[in-house]
Amino acid sequence: MNWITNYVRPKINSLFSRREVPENLWTKCPECGTMLFHRELADSLNVCGNCDHHLPISPRERFAALFDAGIFTEVKVPEAVADPLMFRDQKKYPDRLKAAQKDTGEREAMLVAEGEVLRTPIVAAAQEFAFMAGSMGAHVGNAIIAGAERAVKLRRPFVLFAASGGARMQEGILSLMQMPRTTVALALLREAGLPYVVVLTNPTTGGVTASYAMLGDVQIAEPNALICFAGPRVIEQTIREKLPEGFQRAEYLLDHGMIDRVTHRKALREEIATILRMLTLQPPAIKGDLPRPEAGGGAPA
């Protein structure tokens, strides 16, 4: 209730409320509170136009912006055992999964794709934070293994965009086992001499940080991303003191020597291509807008 709903008479009031837009057209920036119109937000890759806060971005939107002309091919991820523990808290795990699938339109919390970035062929994986907090279960493990295997097969670098609350509790010990599982996948890349670049986005925490998200050859983070093993609340409860400003944020990690770079989302595409082309001994990328890759002309099928 704001002053206008209290003050203005019912008839006029209903006029006002009717003018209220459907909520999905506007997003409130969680950092500065600015209302952001959906089209502008999408154009700016979900970065707040006022304070530059990086809001979550879905893997599909991410890939559309990352790959040349927005063209990419999904890499098939083998189906994992559904609900291996027959887990039930206040809800059944399969019901939580169904709800997340309905909300996001995705099958699970990670998407893998192949394509070209400034004509640099790569395989990329991105985590969907909106899907059960991007939590790491057997699917995420399978996705990383599938991505790494595909990269090895095509002899391409592997780029991973992390966004996760950590392990998926509903898969219990098997979610924990994704830590060594995904680490095996990265060993395959390493042995094949292929670069592995990690982009840490807000937030990346827990078992995800403590495995594949911290093992990149190059570690990049988006500005102000929360990156940690234990979250700030848990630490404050343990040590019973206030944490310093900016603790566990990307810039703080950069200062403490934990990551290589903090890079704005809009600059990531060029930066990834630049780094990967050097690591794979290719000439510099041709920057700027590129013509659509011709069908069959080296573009992925």
Binding site: P180, T183, A210, A213, A230, I235, I239, G257
Partner: peptide, 25 residues
């Protein structure tokens, strides 16, 4: 693993990730 300020600053997550990786190597 200990959830503390210093532990986080010195790379708790990275240390765990590397130790797991070393077990595999």
């Amino acid at each position: 693993a200990y959830p503390g300020k210093g532990a986080e600053e010195r790379g708790q997550a990275e240390a765990i990730a590397r130790s797991t990786a070393r077990c595999l190597e």
